[in-house]
């Protein structure tokens, strides 16, 4: 059987024509036996494309959801809006009970910040506070100064119609220490100011107070310390800003601060 099988198979041979066409095909497919280096690279292309998509996805997500600036709004409810690089609101956070309540009732995520501020100002709770002659303070902070200024001017334009509002810039460090104390930026600043006159004040107390209450308290305490001080508060931005950076240097800060008042009251 072996011999017969062998003979049978021996009689089967590959045709010359078949060999030639195969060789020609291989030669054509391999580009004349030259394309060596391109093959591994080509395999990498889809993988790299996938990686790129992944990075773009994560990067986009990261860019979108990282706040670059913060708008802090305080009356009694303390509220902070995180603004991303594309001027959209990506986070809303309340820093006291009222603020949390307000934050929960607001739907300003992904809105442009000017729209968001307008929306908040027209909110019933805020409107009620404003109608009670409360002071609304808006602080804008960010790592990019130009951007912060732009936002600030926009926000100012938004709040032009309201009296008793004042807007100012804040720094990043300030925001960090404010958050550490559990206060929003605007309130933290007011708290520091108050602390100069009343060193016993605590952040918890401040948290529950309205901005007007704080201002009034500052004004009354300042009034007792520095005679002839005006009780109405109209902080000038530059004075505010200088003050905001200051630590607890009581006398120096107080003096500079007082200066601001004097300028205003005169």
């Amino acid at each position: 059987m072996k011999d017969k099988l062998k003979k049978t198979f021996d009689s089967i041979r590959a045709e010359e024509e078949l060999k030639a066409s195969t060789l020609e095909f291989v030669s054509r497919k391999t580009g004349g036996y030259r394309k060596r280096k391109t093959v591994p690279y080509r395999r990498l292309v889809p993988a790299l494309a996938c990686l790129l998509m992944l990075f773009l996805g994560f990067g986009g997500y990261h860019v979108y959801f990282t706040p670059t600036s913060i708008i802090s709004i305080d009356i009694n409810p303390s509220l902070e809006l995180g603004i991303n690089a594309l001027d959209r609101v990506v986070s809303v956070e309340g820093y006291n009970e009222d603020g949390e309540e307000l934050a929960a009732s607001l739907n300003v995520n992904h809105m442009n910040y000017t729209e968001a501020v307008e929306e908040i100002l027209s909110n019933d709770i805020i409107a009620e506070y404003l109608s009670q002659d409360q002071i609304l303070s808006i602080a804008v902070a960010g790592s990019d100064e130009g951007k912060t200024e732009k936002i600030l001017s926009q926000v100012r334009a938004c709040t032009e119609g309201e009296k008793n509002t004042h807007c100012y810039e804040a720094s990043h460090e300030e925001i960090a220490s404010a958050h550490e104390a559990g206060l929003s930026c605007g309130k933290y600043r007011a708290y520091l100011e108050l602390k100069q006159y009343d060193p016993d004040i605590t952040t918890e107390e401040v948290q529950g107070m309205t901005m007007k209450e704080i201002r009034d308290r500052i004004a009354s305490l300042a009034g007792t310390e520095e005679a002839g001080e005006s009780t109405s508060y109209r902080g000038e931005d530059s004075a505010q800003q200088k003050h905001g950076h200051g630590g607890q240097e009581h006398s120096g800060e107080g003096e500079r601060h007082g200066h601001g008042y004097r300028q205003e009251s005169e």
């Binding site: 078949l18 066409s21 195969t22 060789l23 497919k29 391999t30 036996y33």
Partner: peptide
């Protein structure tokens, strides 16, 4: 034939 020898070549 084409598949096999192309595979061999590559």
């Amino acid at each position: 034939f084409q598949n096999v020898f192309l595979k061999y070549a590559l």
